[in-house]
Amino acid sequence: MQDTPPIWPGWLVATAICIRFYSRLPVPRLPGEGDLHGIPDFRLVPRALPFAALAIALPAALVTLIGGLAGLSGMVVAALALTALALSTGAFHEDGLADSADGLFGGRDREHRLEIMKDSRIGSYGAMALGLSLLLRASLIAGILDHAGAWGTAAAVLVAAPWSRAEGLLLLATQPPARSGGASAAVGQPSLATARIALGLSLIGATGIALAAHLPLAGLLAGFALAHAAAAVLARLARRLIGGQTGDIVGAVQQLAEIAIYLGLALALGWAGR
């Protein structure tokens, strides 16, 4: 007999589980929850990831809004926003990006690459990846602020959060785990339907936020397309070099997707401003 999937715990509980897993934001125990420190079952729970992502990005969006309205320079506002994001997540995704860069580009074979990715120390490839990610995100957020103002930039931070994480969820659903004992294998593989629900909710929410903040929908869709392309390229590279996905690869996908979304918006805003 096949194991039946777990009973869906409810959207609110699922959102709380996702917030705890993806961030360091404090969330009280909700009725119906089990072990708060246990490994979540990702077969169904991540359907609520878009709601959790909005909650995780909200402090950064508020910092962006306040800094922009206060007249701070674009790079200062961007640096504050990225700091708030890192504090909310505990640099969860940045760590995955650095480990992925070190392992994929610094290893000589599959086992060596996976060994490097488990090492908590950062190498030259990881440091370069982190530096470029921070530089690109800060520059793009500053550029969006110049064209869209404080409200538009705060909205951009919010729309990037759900889709970039949903791209990582799609990777989990479509690629096998590279190691049997890794974190991505332990949480369980989400179904493709779960990933599609998360992407659909992310698209609906992002469209509503973009319309309310007068962000160009063409830029939003371009950013999502670029994010999907970047995730597909990294997925293919990881499949070839290490045999599938790991938690670090999922974190790297989030970082690349976030950059891509900001890039799409910045390009559209720059073109419209000509």
Results as ranks from 00 to 15, higher is better:
48 A>H: 00
219 G>V: 08
201 L>R: 07
171 L>N: 02
234 L>H: 08
43 R>P: 10
150 A>H: 04
33 E>N: 03
140 L>T: 05
57 A>M: 04
133 S>G: 09
149 G>I: 00
77 V>Y: 08
147 H>G: 06
130 L>A: 01
33 E>W: 00
215 L>R: 00
53 A>Q: 06
134 L>A: 09
97 L>R: 02
110 R>L: 05
24 R>N: 11
131 G>E: 08
246 T>R: 03
228 H>C: 09
189 Q>L: 06
79 A>T: 14
73 S>H: 12
86 A>M: 13
4 T>P: 10
128 M>C: 11
117 M>E: 05
207 T>R: 06
31 P>M: 12
121 R>F: 12
224 F>G: 08
200 G>L: 13
127 A>R: 00
271 W>M: 14
151 W>Q: 11
107 G>L: 06
266 A>M: 12
75 M>Y: 15
31 P>G: 09
17 I>K: 00
122 I>F: 09
180 S>K: 15
3 D>S: 14
4 T>F: 12
246 T>S: 09
219 G>R: 07
133 S>Y: 15
134 L>N: 02
5 P>N: 07
115 E>P: 05
119 D>Q: 01
113 R>I: 03
136 L>E: 10
245 Q>R: 10
92 F>K: 00
261 I>T: 07
35 D>M: 02
94 E>D: 04
5 P>D: 12
223 G>W: 09
85 L>M: 15
274 R>Q: 14
162 P>C: 09
35 D>E: 13
180 S>T: 13
75 M>T: 14
76 V>E: 12
242 I>C: 01
242 I>G: 00
204 I>M: 14
168 G>Q: 06
192 L>V: 14
172 L>C: 11
216 P>K: 01
101 A>Y: 10
244 G>H: 04
181 G>F: 08
92 F>Y: 12
181 G>K: 12
63 V>T: 08
143 G>N: 10
250 V>L: 10
203 L>W: 10
66 I>E: 05
262 Y>N: 05
99 D>I: 00
226 L>W: 13
167 E>I: 07
